[in-house]
Amino acid sequence: MHTVWKGAISFGLVHVPVKMFSATEDKDISLKMIHRECGSNISYIRKCPTCDVDVEWDDIVKGYEYEKGRYVILEKDELEALSSDATKTITILDFVALEEIDPIYFQKTYYLSPDQAGGNAYNLLMEAMRQSGRIGIAKVSIRSKSSLAAIRIIDDCLAMETIFYPDEIRSIDQVPGLPETVNVNEKELMMARMLIEQLSTPFEPAKYTDDYRSRLMDLIQHKIAGEDVRVAPEQQRTNVLDLMAALQASLEAVKLPPTAPGGIDTGAAGMTPTTASEPIASTEAGTTGESEVVAKVTKPRARKTAKKETVS
């Protein structure tokens, strides 16, 4: 697994060096936006609507819109200054019972493994938590985002669950249409409880599958097998187009009248672009992906006359 964070767990004066790994992965099937007309992939361009120009990443900064259309610009170094060395520390503030935390608070799970020579401290913390039956509530910053976290044990591994701050949980009072009072029929309630009992079983996560994803993959494979496939047209390279234009311009540059001064015949024989003093050169342009072709062609030298006069 890829290491997403390195730091230490801190509780009291004890520091446990750890590495962090994402415990989950997104299995959603990625579908791209395709132009129905030709089958090409649609690209998204970072463009300034005011300047009407494409904007490079180096020219993009972050800003906070405090009024409609008015922004406070926040530079990268200003944002980094807000993050202290604590961003490399998972600071345990309290130890609580897991059942006291409502699942609505949980966000994302990470596995923690001992780093460097932290194996002994890692095992000590894990065994102490296992025997106490408590989990740790900590503060951590990942990618400049501060979050609460729950440190708990999964099998023989410390795991960290990022959790929402209380003010990030919306109040139930905001949910429309909730009944003011709960009135149920006793017989219906008894039957509902019987049904729940019949459907009750130990939790076996392996038996649950993503039916939509399976059906979508079946549909995709069916279309591939039936060759119901849209092939995007091959993009022509810009330098090829420019090269053709340069060749045409070169031919135009070396064209001479059928009879040059001095009676020299400048027809097709002996007067081809191969007599140019310099070949056509093509250079790639920086990072724009475009190409620029520069053609340098000089007029061919004509044969000397008996009087050693040069006809150009």
Score class of each variant (00 low, 15 high):
residue 228 D to V: 03
residue 45 I to T: 13
residue 265 D to A: 11
residue 157 C to V: 09
residue 35 H to Q: 12
residue 109 T to L: 12
residue 74 L to D: 11
residue 12 G to Q: 06
residue 144 S to I: 04
residue 19 K to C: 08
residue 138 A to T: 04
residue 284 E to H: 03
residue 282 S to K: 00
residue 108 K to D: 14
residue 41 N to Y: 04
residue 30 S to I: 08
residue 67 E to M: 09
residue 24 T to Y: 00
residue 119 G to C: 02
residue 256 L to E: 05
residue 123 N to E: 15
residue 267 G to I: 01
residue 58 D to S: 10
residue 165 Y to D: 02
residue 299 K to D: 08
residue 145 K to R: 15
residue 106 F to E: 13
residue 69 G to C: 02
residue 47 K to Y: 13
residue 263 G to I: 01
residue 208 Y to H: 11
residue 280 I to M: 07
residue 311 V to K: 02
residue 84 S to Y: 04
residue 270 G to H: 01
residue 73 I to F: 05
residue 31 L to R: 03
residue 258 P to W: 00
residue 226 G to A: 02
residue 285 A to E: 12
residue 14 V to H: 01
residue 205 P to K: 02
residue 121 A to W: 06
residue 83 S to N: 13
residue 279 P to L: 02
residue 69 G to D: 06
residue 107 Q to V: 06
residue 191 M to R: 05
residue 7 G to M: 01
residue 252 E to F: 05
residue 128 A to T: 14
residue 164 F to V: 04
residue 219 L to C: 09
residue 161 E to L: 01
residue 93 L to E: 14
residue 255 K to D: 13
residue 100 E to N: 12
residue 89 T to C: 08
residue 173 D to F: 03
residue 126 M to Q: 10
residue 229 V to C: 06
residue 163 I to M: 11
residue 284 E to A: 08
residue 174 Q to L: 09
residue 204 E to A: 10
residue 253 A to T: 13
residue 237 R to S: 15
residue 17 P to T: 00
residue 24 T to V: 02
residue 121 A to N: 13
residue 158 L to V: 11
residue 102 D to G: 04
residue 143 R to F: 12
residue 215 R to C: 00
residue 221 Q to Y: 13
residue 34 I to L: 12
residue 244 M to A: 14
residue 114 P to V: 01
residue 121 A to D: 15
residue 280 I to H: 00
residue 133 G to S: 09
residue 140 V to E: 14
residue 59 D to S: 07
residue 217 M to N: 12
residue 170 R to N: 10
residue 139 K to W: 06
residue 111 Y to P: 09
residue 15 H to L: 09
residue 281 A to Q: 00
residue 285 A to F: 08
residue 113 S to L: 00
residue 152 R to W: 02
residue 262 G to D: 06
residue 22 S to D: 14
residue 185 N to D: 13
residue 258 P to C: 00
residue 278 E to L: 02
residue 203 F to R: 09
residue 14 V to F: 04
residue 11 F to N: 06
residue 116 Q to G: 07
residue 237 R to D: 14
residue 90 I to D: 14
residue 5 W to E: 11
residue 100 E to M: 07
residue 242 D to S: 05
residue 220 I to L: 04
residue 273 P to V: 10
residue 255 K to G: 10
residue 120 N to E: 14
residue 78 E to Q: 15
residue 259 T to Y: 04
